[in-house]
Design a protein around this nucleic acid. Structure first.
Length: 553
RNA sequence: UGGGUUAUUGUGUAAAGGUAGCACUACAGAUUUUGAUUCUGUCUGUCUAGGUUCGAAUCCUAGUAACCCAACCA
């Protein structure tokens, strides 16, 4: 069996570059703009950039692309750093595009001096009109032929705050009839009298993305600058600027961004969900943000494995949420402690069990022996799951029903003798007898049953709030649907159970703990928990063969 | 209608002219003190039409479809 995985196209490029001696080692970068929270799509980029450097021996810089002061904030800087660390990556350097504002200004001057940039007084409307369309060439601005001296003078005045926002811009002088719209004299500097989260009020002109990103890559000697597909048209400009500026030739490579079923991934849409109150915040467990997944109970390993499995290519994709859930369950199955919790309770009374007796039973904490064992109190009255009883047993029903036998997990086999109903026909209690010789671990009864159900002792049960999450959208691809994507939200994405019964061992749970509520799913403590009131989030359900059986009819 | 990018099963991703493989999903079965896990098995694919070749997912020609580009956003 060969464990060798074939390289993705970027790894192939790097391997070739290294083999041919183009570089001795590589440097990558992760360049978020600090204007929002990171989402699962970013984790693909993070895993790629950091993973590449790790694989080929190199480093990865964290660089904040903070060239637009009006949208950016240190709140985002902090959350981004937290998320990257949580995912398990450490950057070699923490840089900011704003660190380079002085250098970038010099670069602009150099371009002007080469006759390759000019100050344009046109309004944004005029610039847009003159730009033409994809099918029609643009026209030169009347300011295009200004002298180098005048441009230098004007650009310095822009920097010195002589002009208001929008009055002037600096443009690269390339070709107004270029087939690539980005090469039609792109704006490289604009005036913004705005407070920057790091440089304060030092600057009132700020470089555009195209005059900051590639230059920052170059300053940091980034060998492989990896970004998403929509930046392909920028590459020509990226290369042009590096060539004219005569600086270190970083190279840009593009891969397809991650899309996932039943969610949206654009920052704009996520911001809308937060601002319109559809979710409680960026870290709402239903959000596809890293902080949302973290709060919901996802593990860093599961997300890294997911990013590894989805691969890297240039094709548009829509990844099944089920793959992420598979990676999650794969990890949690090995590590989560098994406990019992009854979410929708009904009382079970063992009529032949001593009235006030309490027995401490032991149960394994999981399939892996290293997880150890714990004691669970057992008594005459138990809470069991309402859905584990059927008045009239269905076909292939292994659980409780009149005259049927089941095992109570880690305890005894019981037989249902009768049940009580209220006036509305709701079942209120189930009466069973237990088989004393069937005690878990020392069963001499010789009886084997098909079903095992979970329970919590009525006398010893604690209560907790349990939040059950479902997908945020009903549509597989809400962004591609007609109309507003919010029309496709799932109205039942959150179901709160205010008083679930939990086994007493859960009272000492910590925020980092991961649990499997046996037969119900994986859960973790939410940060809303207090000592008086525990709150659990359902991380993900277990696979459920029975519900499929039911659907088949 | 200009330019760019992409096309392999339901979803992803391999195969660099030589057996279309892997994972998820789905389905069937075995095991199970979680209808979980684990194990075994099954199904479905090279965008279309031509061509080159002993042989094409791969090369050539012509189509088709999807996505991106006309922010003083990144």
């Amino acid at each position: 069996m060969s464990e060798e995985k074939s390289l993705n196209f970027i790894e192939e490029i790097i391997e070739t570059d290294l083999n041919e001696g183009k570089y001795k080692s590589i440097i990558t970068r992760f360049p978020p703009e600090p204007n929002g929270y990171l989402h699962i799509g970013h984790s693909k980029s993070i895993c790629l950039n950091f993973g590449l450097a790790k694989k080929f021996g190199g480093g990865t810089n964290l660089r904040f692309d903070d060239t637009n002061p009006v949208t950016e904030d240190t709140e985002y800087v902090e959350s981004i750093k937290e998320d990257i660390r949580w995912l398990g990556f450490e950057w070699s350097n923490e840089f900011y595009a704003s660190d380079y504002f002085d250098t970038l200004f010099e670069y602009a001057l150099k371009l002007i001096n080469k006759g390759l940039a000019y100050v344009d007084d046109s309004t944004s409307e005029e610039i847009a009109t003159l730009k033409g369309t994809p099918t029609e060439p643009g026209k030169d601005s009347i300011y295009r032929s200004r002298s180098i001296e005048e441009n230098i003078h004007l650009f310095n005045e822009m920097k010195d705050g002589k002009y208001k926002d929008g009055e002037k811009v600096l443009r690269a002088k390339i070709d107004m009839s270029h087939t690539n719209m980005l090469m039609r004299d792109p704006i490289i500097y604009r005036i913004k009298h705005a407070h920057h989260h790091r440089t304060g009020d030092k600057w009132c002109i700020y470089p555009m993305y195209d005059f900051a990103h590639g230059q920052s890559d170059s300053i940091e000697n980034i060998t492989h600058s990896i970004c998403t597909l929509e930046f392909i048209p920028h590459r020509e400009l990226y290369d042009w600027l590096i060539e004219k500026l005569e600086i270190f030739p970083s190279h840009q490579y593009e891969f397809a961004r991650l899309n996932m079923t039943y969610t949206v991934m654009s920052k704009r849409k996520l911001l809308q969900l937060v601002n319109d109150g559809h979710v409680s915040g960026w870290d709402d467990p239903r959000m596809p943000t890293i902080s949302g997944f973290r709060r919901k109970g996802y593990t860093p390993l599961s997300i890294r494995n997911f990013c590894d499995k989805i691969g890297v290519a240039k094709r548009e994709n829509l990844i099944d949420l089920s793959l992420l859930e598979f990676c999650l369950r794969e990890d949690l199955n090995m590590t989560a402690k098994r406990v019992m919790s009854v979410l929708d309770p009904i009382k079970l009374i063992i009529t032949n069990y001593e009235e006030d007796k309490t027995e401490m039973l032991t149960s394994e904490n999981g399939p892996d022996e290293t997880l150890g064992h714990r004691n669970i109190p057992f008594g005459r009255e138990l809470w069991i799951e309402r859905e584990d009883f059927m008045e009239e047993a269905a076909k292939k029903w292994f659980r409780l029903a009149p005259d049927a036998m089941v095992r109570l997990k880690s305890a005894y086999i019981v037989k249902c003798e009768s049940f009580e109903k209220d006036n509305d026909g709701n079942i209120t209690a189930i009466h069973c007898t237990y088989i004393p010789e069937s005690k878990s671990g020392q069963d001499t009864s010789g009886i084997s049953v098909k079903g095992t159900i979970h329970w919590v002792s009525v006398k010893h049960a604690a209560t907790a709030e349990v939040r059950l999450y479902d997908r945020l959208f009903k549509s597989e691809n809400p962004a591609a649907e007609e109309g507003d994507f919010k029309e496709y939200m799932n109205p039942d994405s959150l179901h709160i159970i205010h008083n679930a019964f939990i086994e007493p061992s859960l009272l000492t749970a910590n925020l980092e703990d991961r649990f499997q509520f046996i037969r119900k799913g994986y859960f973790c403590l939410d940060k809303d928990s207090t000592r008086e009131k525990l709150v659990f989030n359902r991380t993900v359900t277990l696979k459920d063969a029975w519900s499929k059986e039911v659907k088949k009819g």
